[in-house]
Design a protein around this nucleic acid. Structure first.
Lengths: 329, 329
DNA sequence: CTGTTAGCGCTTTCAG
DNA sequence: CTGAAAGCGCTAACAG
């Protein structure tokens, strides 16, 4: 059915090697033959068989992007960023998430060993040593999206979790004059969550204000539940700093259900600045993370690694955060 | 580096053909040798080289998903649905969007010819005959996500645009007793937009109420602009039916800027029921589309087509819509 | 500048 | 039930 270089070679009365050369823009071909071959290729509507090419070269034009899940707006922004960069370089992106069907580790191992992809971007907020060692043993170019400072030896995109959280807390204390704050954390094993928690606590301690910590898991429901506990506390906090916007939304739901007012009765602030936050009632004060930039930077870094043979020293790119002041506190 | 069947064959003192058979669960192997080979494969942490396999079989375990763009929540829900089904069948999904870098047609052609994928899901709201003919000439299994009834000969997932729009309009007229309605359309060449427009107009005509049509393009900005025009009209409409939620949000922005109240001064309703809609102030009355179901159904249909050799007659799966009554009208 | 050839890892006849 | 061998389409030395 589809034309192959063999066919083109036959028609052009040259060898397949020559055809291969012009397809791959190898300069060692005369203009004449090049033009001739190109014409025939055009006429036959030739398209290289990518599978064959990838196989022969032992490298594909596919990169893998592994995410914890694909649902959250947060993650889709990452996909968008990665795709945009990858696409501009003729790379295709395979997106996979650690579904119920497969654990993250299994997923990664499969990707590495099956030779499908020639680079990997891994967004995971808790990386254990096993995985890290698997990753470094495979000689696949890898870029991590992870904010933990403990990870050396890998190229990494990090979010300014600590700074963002610290600034927000400082703002709540110094500008808004709250003196009893609460923080709803993300999952304990999540590095971003840990950093945000630490930024909060450090700022509270620095200014000597009282605080309460409640546990969440980044889901709307957990925000709702944590908020309920907080409001029923004998010492009701004046403001709740949720470790992400989804949990802040859960707080909104809870507070409304209890017929309380934001920010009069209790303030709420979040982290991420997802699309919906600006439309909440009242609009949510939060810490903005430029998520698309995370994806873009990750892809750019990965491409650089794939293209350069010599392994450059691993770099960390920090994506800064920004305080977005709205009306929820 | 990575183990191959050759290596396993050597250690098991069998031929590579036998190894290949057990890997592929061919029953024509004795239990003993099978167990033996499996054990060695396990020990060597063998993973088949997908590229080699795909190449040899002339078919891959990759399916393509082409979208107009990747940013919108709408599209990411589709991705999620497709991925979930595909993944459960050991298929990987390559997501591509018709970027500035490539036209939709170019994208499709590349995908088809390069032999990378063994099935394609194409979400496009305006398909021209050229593209359709390219698609049918390639013998690639294809599932379209498109609501136009003019497309025969292709498996297709369609959204209940017309019904949803007709019901919403009927609700506006009969239950809410509006008698001057406005509709902000999506892009003219978009089939979903066309159907929604038609549903609106048909309902208005059926009940003999007056209506105004304003043009939009599904973007928030276009909703804002269309709304402004509408409100400055000498005959100001009592309610605005935006062809999607994003434009409805644009209306909210505009109405607030003009210091008007929803729904007292003017009602607003949308279409899609994206996540943010329930949190708008006031919560948006809209038509819900189960977008994830769209993705899932598309993937399921595609898998069925890929697996069955005989081409079944093309089916159309309709994803119904549902009126979501909230407080914006 | 161009042709010859080996071979990538695996599947798949075809014999045995 | 198992092995031998061809070949998928292309790249990449190596000759010439």
């Amino acid at each position: 059915m589809a034309a192959t270089i063999k066919e083109i070679a036959a028609r052009a009365h040259v060898s397949i090697a020559t055809v291969s050369r012009v397809i791959n823009k190898d300069p060692r071909v005369t203009e004449e033959t090049r033009a001739q071959i190109l014409k025939i290729a055009e006429r036959l509507d030739y398209r290289p068989n990518i599978l064959a090419r990838s196989f022969a070269q032992k490298k594909s034009n596919l990169i893998g992007l592994i995410l914890p899940e694909i649902s959250d707006e947060y993650f889709t922004e990452v996909i968008k960023g990665v795709d945009e960069i990858a696409f501009s370089q003729n790379l295709y992106t395979i997106v996979a998430s650690s579904h119920k069907y497969k654990s993250l580790e299994d997923e990664v191992v499969t990707f590495i060993k099956n030779g499908l992809i020639s680079g990997l971007i891994l967004l995971a907020s808790n990386l254990d040593d096993t995985l890290l060692s698997i990753l470094s043993k495979s000689h696949l170019p890898v870029v991590l999206i992870n904010s933990s400072n403990n990870i050396k030896k890998f190229d990494r995109i990090a979010i300014g979790d600590y700074q963002g959280s610290f600034s927000m807390t400082t703002y709540l204390i110094k500008k808004k004059h709250y003196n009893l704050l609460a923080h709803i954390t993300g999952p304990l094993d999540n590095d971003d969550a840990g950093l945000r928690r630490k930024g909060f606590i450090d700022a509270c301690k620095k200014y000597g204000v009282k605080y309460i910590i409640e546990k969440g898991d980044f889901s709307r429901e957990s925000g709702f539940n944590a908020c309920k506990k907080l409001l029923n506390n004998k010492d009701r906090p004046q403001v709740i700093f949720a470790a992400n916007d989804m949990m802040a939304i859960g707080c909104y739901d809870c507070i409304k259900q209890m017929k309380l007012q934001i920010p009069q009765d209790v303030g709420v602030v979040g982290f991420d600045d997802v699309f919906v936050s600006q439309y909440l009632n009242p609009p949510l004060t939060t810490v903005r993370v430029n998520i698309e930039a995370v994806g873009k930077k990750a892809a750019e870094l990965l491409l650089k690694k794939i293209q350069s043979t010599n392994n450059i020293s691993s770099s960390v790119i920090n994506i800064p955060t920004e305080l977005i002041i709205r009306e929820s506190c």
